[in-house]
């Protein structure tokens, strides 16, 4: 009998209690599908991504889409105002979302957003970092690990070169960025747990 969906990939956290679980799920899917399609379009533009096998392209996207969305939508989490902006553009306070059942994942999303935004990355740096997030050879189900690893290394080298060029006096930025990768994995795991709970008990 869950009444709220606190994911900002919805237009609103409020769920119509008259709707069936299936219908709620359909609405949620309609809501986040355009964002997922944008991730796929982004992936296609990563040089070398489309040279990977179809299987590995799908595996990387399946495993990494949530993490890419977290990076792309980092600005939805307003650390100063303590609000989250949903797809409709409406903002909800942390307290309101907490009262709707949001827990540790929400806190962790704010922490991540705050730290990533503090690095003051350019659009180009964010884009390259996002590519690094997506192309990770240690995702489950990768068939041709060597190909993905080679592309991953190329992207990491390009990111290091760009960050070093843009921030010559801030030697730790590249390291801090790489340390965001395990943070994203952790968020991904927390999110997956919530999804499983939702699907089993919609």
């Amino acid at each position: 009998n869950r009444m709220y969906l606190v994911c900002p990939m919805n237009t609103s956290p409020y769920v119509d209690p008259q709707k069936s679980g299936h219908s709620i799920w359909e609405d949620f899917s309609m809501s986040f599908t355009p964002a997922v399609r944008e991730v796929v379009e982004f992936a296609k533009r990563i040089p070398g991504f489309q040279d990977l096998s179809q299987h590995d392209q799908v595996s990387l996207l399946k495993a990494g889409t949530f993490e890419v969305l977290v990076v792309r939508f980092v600005s939805l989490f307003d650390v100063k105002e303590r609000t989250v902006t949903f797809l409709s553009g409406k903002k909800y306070s942390v307290e309101a979302l907490r009262s709707m059942g949001a827990g540790d994942l929400l806190n962790s999303m704010f922490d991540f957003s705050e730290k990533l935004l503090a690095l003051n990355l350019s659009e180009e740096e964010m884009s390259l970092f996002t590519a690094v997030v997506l192309v990770s050879a240690d995702r489950s189900g990768i068939e041709n690990v060597n190909s993905v690893e080679a592309l991953q290394e190329t992207l990491i080298r390009a990111l290091r070169s760009l960050v070093t060029k843009n921030h010559p006096n801030e030697a730790t930025i590249f390291t801090k960025l790489l340390l965001k990768l395990p943070d994203l994995r952790s968020l991904n795991n927390m999110h997956s747990e919530q999804l499983l709970a939702f699907k089993v008990h919609p």
């Binding site: 796929v40 296609k44 179809q54 799908v58 889409t65 999804l195 499983l196 699907k199």
Partner: peptide
């Protein structure tokens, strides 16, 4: 429901979005 990506129908969305580029590609 052991696979969250399948759970969300994510794989289907991803495959459809990739399809335009994949029609002529071997596995």
């Amino acid at each position: 429901f052991s696979d969250p990506a399948s759970n969300l129908g994510l794989e289907d969305i991803i495959r459809k979005a990739l399809m335009g580029n994949m029609e002529d590609r071997p596995e």
